[in-house]
Amino acid sequence: MLRPILADLHIHTVLSACAEVEMIPPLIVRRACRLGLGLIAVTDHNACANAEAVIRAAEGTGLAVLPGMELQTREEVHLLCLFDTVEQSLAWQAEVWSLLPPLENREEFFGPQYVVDAEGQWVRTEGRLLAASADIALEQAIARVHALGGLAIPAHVDRPSFSLLANLGMVPANLGADALEVTARFQPEAGFAQWPELRGWPLVVDGDAHTLNDMQNRTLFKVAAPTVRELSLALRGAEGRKITVDWHPTKS
């Protein structure tokens, strides 16, 4: 049976150097529940290590959590990579890490990268620089994510940096992505006028949350379950599944 599920598919944790220290599993889950979200995805920069902790923190709450990653491609385009299982996400992380430059993070410049448990307790500090580009082209990355059974969604395409439209000028022919993400600041009238090609794409609005306040509850999926397969059907408008975006932000 189909049901409506509000989703924010782009949430950072303290593993992302640029995220606030409040982005720990129990607070993310509490905020998601307060926003009425039924589904979130954990998408740290080029890494997946905190996704399982958020999944555990959400146990018993009714909130579904997809493990994911915000990949930075060769073109410096950010790509959401979403999976059903932690195993899939870690397989993808291993592939991505083989394509990242082997640089050390410098906390004084970029900020710390913490791996935490379900309670938000510190487990270890990731020493590898995650704010870098993996040596893989955007279309190749999308194909690899699909091969691993995931969803691939170019992130914040309306942003002036690290985005599909800024870095590559236009949506490439034969991109193969499942949807495009726009920021919470996207205004449909101005946005569609500036990028008419966006009208042909399923769009999702996410928080790209680096603070709890950034989280969004404006993308509604009508699906049978919060799984990659169901989300994919909804993004294609297939088998009665669909997405609806609330273009008018609520004040929260």
């Binding site: 073109e75 082209a137 955007l138 870095n167 590559l168 000028g169 236009m170 490439p172 022919a173």
Partner: peptide, 10 residues
Amino acid sequence: LQSHANVVAV
């Protein structure tokens, strides 16, 4: 330094 197909499009 970009070599993406969109370079040709532009």
